[in-house]
Design a protein around this nucleic acid. Structure first.
Lengths: 334, 334
DNA sequence: AATAATTTTGAAAAGGTTTTCTAAAAAGGA
DNA sequence: TCCTTTTTAGAAAACCTTTTCAAAATTATT
């Protein structure tokens, strides 16, 4: 059996209170005893039982993270950032991958509730009322990352998708492109779908290229869907010389499609991605893209959640981090 | 405050024992009371406190997973498999990413210890004596996945790296290649480095191509290193017409290098990867590779750990799952 | 109807820690 | 040296659940 505080006390010939104090307020116990206790702790490889502690503190010092798709490298960066912040703040992290499954997400909330996580970071998904209500029903504080909610007033950290999309499209326009299409996220089950479309629209409008506004196809997060969407897009609008993709994976799908059709990228068509996944500089051609600070997003989300947990509120309710245009090889002047 | 069993008892006008029984042995309590209790539970959104439970059961129903690099998609598959198995078996999962940092790994073991995880899956890394001793010191049962140990007798699930590498190289040989190089893992800090080299060597030897045995460069897990290694390899052996890469990311790095040197893949040089990451069918050209069953590996590892936890031992100590050659576009007959 | 057997219920202990409160020991002041 | 103050230490309660044990209520048996 694992040693308990009692075993340590016995070995050090002190009371359990003293052992506890050595761990929590070391300078309230006289040096000689303290050393005996420390000795015993090491000898037994004693580690206080988190259950007993949790019972008293009513805290698990664990945060939950809900992500929609672990196979998307986007979340790897988020996780790394969040994990580093957790280490700094003294929390453990419990990551759950929902595979975009509603039932699964709800059941993970139950798990978090039962395991008494102190708070949850909810990543990148739409905060449906069901989720919101369940979360508040469980009285678990939470923040949104790479997401926000207009319906509910929940702290969030993300980039400004509208401006980021605008920047991407303006970049293509300034390259001289006049025929620009888009591969987007569906508007009804994504958070960033609408603002990124909005950025696309605004850029086109400001530069007098409104005739492109309809040149959009939607894809469902994955390469294969983007490939298919690109097919549909270019079938409908063969005149396109540039495509704005709202995800790097979409850009890869689009480029693959064009490659299969013997269309040169960036020779004949420029493609810009979004996210700046690690893959985007490994792809051939290397992707021009809008970089999101995934690591910082994760880091800030954890900090924000911690702020919410300790102070009860949050200084900035909706926080935006900076995106950045990264020019690589998949775009060229027209 | 979160409701306790006491609140439920009060609302349902029964004792807390009865509430407990409704949850754990429902048919020992008479229907009328049972219904009142169930009603109260729902009303209050009561969820039993895992701390109190853990204290009694001495189990957390949580497993730990230690992975070296969350930015490597290989582990995404592993995680998905493991998570599905955990759901089936009634466990939660706590994932920790070590970034291949020894200190960090050790400190995560402490966390697992404190949080009383029931067992740990240790992924893909060398089980150094330090790790092993710490783990047994903490009395936490564990299994290895995509790894094994000759030094210690620990249950493990992996593929047969030697045969897999052999299959990859034989494939290149049967394509008619006579000048074959390799981009490998360092032997001293990787588990699969030596057996994959061994498979390379055996295939070459069996087919009378021993003159290639020295044509190896080593890389350190990442694209950039592989790119550099490819540079060194081709500088030393410009005659190469095929390269066996022990990771898909290495294959991508190699192909990128060749592309930058205007060498056609597969036109002039064939490249075969390893793992069959999701990316490998998105890359241009799509990668010929050895597929590992990542999902099943993770799933089996969790099952095996569960077996170890419940029965105290494991039926098959070292278990191998099947790999598979996937032929795509990065290889061609010589 | 009275007793025996069975089902259902509640009180209390246990699990490991922290913390409060009180007592003992040490240090300081006269 | 004796008393006061301060420091250090231990006993016991609390956190929330499960489970054992005994009592109460119900059902079955005669």
């Amino acid at each position: 059996m694992k040693p308990t505080i009692r075993d340590v006390a016995k070995m050090a010939e002190v009371s359990i209170s003293t052992v506890s104090r050595v761990m929590n307020a070391p300078n309230t116990v006289v040096e000689s005893k303290r050393n005996r206790v420390i000795e015993a702790i090491e000898q037994l490889q004693y580690q206080p039982n988190a259950f007993a502690r949790g019972l008293i503190y009513k805290k698990s010092f664990t945060l939950g993270l809900l992500i929609p798709d672990i196979e998307n490298l986007y979340f790897a960066g988020l996780i790394r950032g969040m994990q580093d912040a957790c280490i700094k703040l003294g929390y453990s992290l419990m990551i759950c991958n929902t595979d975009r499954d509603k039932e699964r997400l709800l059941s993970y909330i139950d798990t978090f509730h039962e395991k008494q996580v102190d708070g949850i970071v909810f990543a990148s998904d739409v905060l449906y009322p069901e989720y919101h209500d369940k979360l508040v029903g469980c009285r678990i504080p939470f923040v949104l990352v790479s997401s926000h909610s207009d319906e509910f007033d929940i702290p969030s950290v993300e980039i400004d998708d509208e401006i980021a999309a605008y920047d991407a499209v303006r970049f293509l326009i300034e390259l001289g492109h006049k025929e620009i299409g888009m591969i987007g996220f569906n508007h009804d089950n994504s958070v960033s779908g609408p603002p990124r479309y909005e950025g696309f629209r605004r850029a086109l409008t400001e530069y007098g290229l409104q005739h492109n506004i309809e040149k959009i196809r939607y894809a469902n997060h994955r390469f294969e869907h983007a490939y298919q969407a690109a097919h549909e897009l270019f079938t409908a609008y063969p005149e396109l010389t540039a495509v704005f993709c709202v995800a790097d994976e979409f850009a890869m799908g689009t480029i693959s499609y064009l490659k299969d059709r013997n269309v040169l990228v960036p020779g004949q068509v420029s493609v810009i991605g979004f996210d700046n996944l690690r893959m985007s500089s490994m792809f051939i051609p290397k992707l021009t893209t809008i970089a999101q600070p995934m690591y910082e997003l994760g880091y800030r989300a954890a900090e924000k959640l911690h702020e919410l947990l300790t102070t009860g509120t949050v200084e900035i309710q909706r926080e935006n981090l900076e995106h950045k245009l990264i020019v690589r090889e998949s775009s060229r002047e027209k």
